[in-house]
Design a protein around this nucleic acid. Structure first.
Lengths: 147, 147
DNA sequence: AGCAGATGGTCAAGCAAGTTGACTATATGG
DNA sequence: CCATATAGTCAACTTGCTTGACCATCTGCT
């Protein structure tokens, strides 16, 4: 692969990720939720059993102060709650409220809608391959393509 | 594909794009250039024959004011020049300097280095497939995965 | 030719979302 | 039981982008 192709691969990655993010955001708003895309990525970390602010910060690739501010917003909008952490009195466990779960489902639906479009373009199985390739490259990296 | 898989595909896309961007940035700095990742994406638009501020803004997905500020930076650091636009006295043609070209080549090398690593992971041909799939999904979208 | 509206670019002010730094409260290991 | 590390928050600041206002030039229409 030529060097210039590697750079265009980067551009394509960013363009696709940006478009997907944008359209999920629109889909979530269309379903009656407000917020910015970062919410969705926070939810994926909080989803199963909650997480601490510090864990969330690591997941998002930001400082814990920034994560804490994000949690403030999420609390204000009723998507999450700060609960005492069982077994560590310093920490708090951030958990999704019912509304938070509903918003998460909305984001999943919106994402699935966009990805279905890709299926029509590339073929269902190709999209699956795409997903697996990406997961192999960056299994659990922080989510932060900001430049 | 289940809804939750679609969301994890998004996360994987962002993680991969973020890692790639980050590592290109490091590679460029290691080769003796300073700047932020946005430079590289500006360069890809300026590379062949230059572009106007407005064209650059479209490419990057920002306002023309923001693009203009970026050009200010690039001029200050010696990567580009503002030249009069042939055939439109309002516009200016932003073109790469020799140093700008050198920085572009450095970014390409750094990108190629990372992508080579992917080749070892997935196989050379799979990476090529990945690139083509992404290009089919978002042929020429603005580069802006910001959330 | 000449005028109206569109377009390229810049200046200035404001804002959103992050950072660094300092601090308190609790946990943990020697 | 003390020293040090860690969870979380408050406050001040930085950065990069936005919105709004403006001038210069281009374009199409009469």
């Amino acid at each position: 692969m030529q060097n210039s192709e590697a750079l265009s691969l980067t551009a394509a990655l960013l363009a696709v990720a940006g478009e997907l993010t944008q359209r999920i955001h629109e889909g979530v708003e269309a379903r009656g939720f407000e917020g910015r895309p970062a919410y969705g990525f926070a939810f994926t970390r909080l989803a199963p059993d909650g997480a601490t602010v510090t864990e969330l910060a690591t997941h998002l690739g930001v400082t814990k102060q920034a994560a804490s501010q994000l949690v403030d917003e999420l609390v204000r909008k009723g998507y999450v709650e700060r609960r005492p952490h069982p077994g560590d009195a310093r920490a708090r466990l951030i958990v999704l409220t019912e509304r938070g779960w509903a918003c998460t489902r909305a984001a999943e639906e919106a994402a699935a809608e966009v990805v279905r479009g890709w299926g029509e373009l590339l073929g269902e199985s190709e999209v699956r391959v795409l997903r697996e390739q990406l997961l192999r490259i960056a299994p659990y990296g922080p989510i932060r393509p900001i430049w």
